[in-house]
């Protein structure tokens, strides 16, 4: 918010409400989440498995309707950052680590929060699994966070093409 200058500021609060349409593909994905399933969708052209897709394979420009893939709930943390400052709308307390989780069998990572490990020990290649909320619904918030599986870290070579 700007500081008030001498007679130079007018405040004009505005509010706009929107009905947000998730779309066909995202609806399918979120309905899966509501059943504690992480559903990927294959691009019929390139065969890549998209998860949480907006509806199209971004390289082929076609709907990701080449088959549903029930993905395991664990994967590799490809890269991440540790957030130390709060920001508007933030849902977690600082500091926290958030990053890209490449589920085993998926070709695109999901964004997620990494917990049950001190944030300064979070590292690239960490193997993580989903921790679900007790009550799940059609929202990614049903995945409370991701925690280390205890498996050895993934070899850099196995995920470097996803960075």
């Amino acid at each position: 918010m700007p500081e008030r200058g001498e007679g130079t500021i007018v405040e004009r609060p505005l509010r706009l409400d929107y009905d947000y349409t998730a779309g066909l593909a995202q609806s399918r994905f979120l309905k899966g989440i509501a059943q504690k399933k992480i559903l990927g969708e294959r691009c019929p052209k390139c065969g890549k498995v998209y998860v949480g897709s907006r509806g199209s394979c971004p390289t082929d420009g076609v709907a990701t309707d080449g088959g549903e893939v029930d993905l395991p709930h664990k994967g590799t943390l490809t890269t991440f950052c540790v957030v130390n400052v709060p920001f508007a709308g933030q849902s977690v307390e600082c500091p926290y680590a958030s990053g890209y989780i490449l589920l085993d069998g998926a070709d695109i990572p999901l964004m997620g929060l990494i917990q049950e490990i001190p944030h300064d020990q979070v590292r690239m290649g960490l193997r993580v699994e989903a921790v679900w909320e007790d009550e799940v619904g059609p929202t990614l918030q049903s995945i409370k966070y991701w925690k280390p599986t205890g498996e050895p870290d993934a070899d850099y070579e196995t995920y470097k093409m996803h960075l």
Partner: peptide, 13 residues
């Protein structure tokens, strides 16, 4: 089909 109402409101000056 899933729908939700999002709020986009901000203090504005």
């Amino acid at each position: 089909v899933l729908r939700a109402t999002g709020k986009a409101g901000s203090p504005f000056a």
